[in-house]
Amino acid sequence: MQSPLGKMKYALAFLFVLLAANFLMAQTVREGAGVNRAPDGAGHGTHEVAPSNNAQAGPIGFTVNTGNGINYNGGPVMKGTVNAYIIWYGNWNGTGSNTAATRSAIETFLGTIGGSALELVNTTYGDNTGNVSGAVHFGGSTIVSATQNLTDARVQTQVNNAITSGRLPRDTNGVYFVLSSSNINETSGFCTRYCGWHTRATLGGSDIKYSFVGNVDRCPSGCEIQTTGPNSAAVGQGGIDGMANTMSHELEEAISDPDLNAWFDSSGQENGDKCNFNFGATSTCNANGLCTASGTSAAAKYNQTFGGHNYMLQQNWRNSGGGACAQHL
């Protein structure tokens, strides 16, 4: 038979174990903890993110460029060749710019933007293990015929479904674009708040980077700089160029701030945000075969040429020489 003192000791020991367990449970990091959306005065999507320890995990070998109007917050960038994938959502065998020709043009765009003058601006970003390479590879696409509008959660579901079904590979050095046809809304604010967005999620245990971009022919005044672009199949169909512009914005940001904890300024703006709809010097399409007939007849503007096509793409923030919006290094 135990004495009251023995019982007390037993109880105290049990209490100690309980408190220790309680303390450890309190240390669990919750996904999203430390991430707060913050106003930037301009209505842009912005964030405040607690510094990550990822950079400290790797060997310290590279010096991270700083002092150029954008801050390094400790997280990783995407290095090496970044693979870009597309999930075509909605009706991409339809009318207007929702066509197979648009799919082909956008896939060509993603397949040739790697190493372009614009993409090399992103090589000014790095972490403590190396810099962005500027190399981008188009890794493939899949089509999801659907009529249901998208939500943020459904966008993530589409990415997850494409990976788990094997239609697209599981790639932690990839960026998955969900591109919706113009009849599809993304109800969290496509066309009224944003033209596209990017984020990350842990899917099947992997850190997956993904982005939503809608066919901006749904809202030309909101998301297109010109209603007929250098790649328009017909006058008034600026969807290809408008989407290419938003995709380049999201791609640069996803590469330089893949986990939302690497590169952004004190007001939460990432490199693409700092030059949103800022195109710099432009040229006018002429009949040299680098613009479509419609783009040429409408005297569409462009500021980038690669892969045998002209494009009108916003500038990217150059993280060198004091920092500036730049079309090239």
Binding site: R30, A42, H44, D152, Y194, G222, C223, I225, E250, N276
Partner: peptide
């Protein structure tokens, strides 16, 4: 202890997204 942990918020499913503001948002916020 059990009831405190039962009150833990449900783990958020989605991370914040970083958006590209529309041209109109940029223009009119200015």
């Amino acid at each position: 202890t059990v009831s405190i942990h039962a009150q833990e918020p449900v783990k958020p499913k989605l991370n914040p997204r970083i958006v590209t503001a529309t041209r109109l948002v940029t223009q009119f916020s200015d």
